[in-house]
Design a protein around this nucleic acid. Structure first.
Lengths: 130, 130
DNA sequence: CCGCATCCTAGAGGATACTG
DNA sequence: CAGTATCCTCTAGGATGCGG
């Protein structure tokens, strides 16, 4: 199988920084993306929010099997800081907080679908590639 | 911003397993994909192999700033087991081994490019989404 | 109800030395 | 040359309890 000059190849070739996920270096957008959606719970949280959001903190916690307060809370904070999650607080008693996704997640969805499709295609045709 | 019923939403809605990266569960292809390309060095190795492969072990190590034998060796093994990397050994003295990517990586490239573009678009328009 | 503070553990990843 | 073996560090993530 001949290696073609594809997008990944071009992208990497244009970069020359070091010490990051890809050869592009610290500011490589792919590296940034992996940091944003990486970790154990982030994608699961985003999926749940897309399906059921806007949703309250405790209801969200019920939807995500096995997550702890520590992780749900810190993950939501990071996702909010990165602009993927919106937090709305109603100052009533007791406090009511609702989480939802931003438009950025709508754009992310189709890309993740492709990534999933790639993985299932690959495991199906594994021997064909070798 | 109204949450549309997009691909991510549909995908997650069709699944109902637990204890995985996304609500789809253990066999969720997206979860599989993240395991395959996740970790500190895998994408960097794939990029380097796409650009310079087929390439010998020690030459590859030079291309990837800061990687140790332990990590390069174990990452290559996993990537090979997952069908993304091909290892060819020439039984001469001293041993010569060449690594290259498989066709699966050609398919992966454009998807990763989109992911990178998503990240850069997002950081540029962060405030517009909120 | 929402979530932070504290403490703890497992495993990802690193350093070094050594071989077929 | 192409790794493996061993030991070590560091932090992502988990458990528990408390406070606005």
């Amino acid at each position: 199988m001949i290696i073609e000059d594809n997008d990944l190849k071009r992208s990497a070739a244009e970069c020359n920084n070091k010490n990051s996920i890809c050869p592009c270096g610290e500011k490589c957008p792919l590296s940034t993306a992996m940091e944003i959606i990486g970790g154990k719970w982030k994608l699961q949280i985003l999926c749940a929010l897309q399906i059921d959001g806007p949703i309250r903190y405790n209801d969200l916690k019920q939807k995500i099997n096995g997550i702890t307060n520590t992780m749900l809370s810190s993950s939501l904070k990071k996702l909010e800081a990165d602009g993927l999650v919106r937090r709305k607080q109603y100052n009533v008693m007791p406090v009511r907080v609702e989480y939802s996704t931003t438009a950025a997640v709508d754009d992310l969805g189709p890309i993740l679908m492709q990534l999933g499709k790639w993985a299932s295609d690959m495991s199906r045709n594994k021997q064909a590639f070798e």
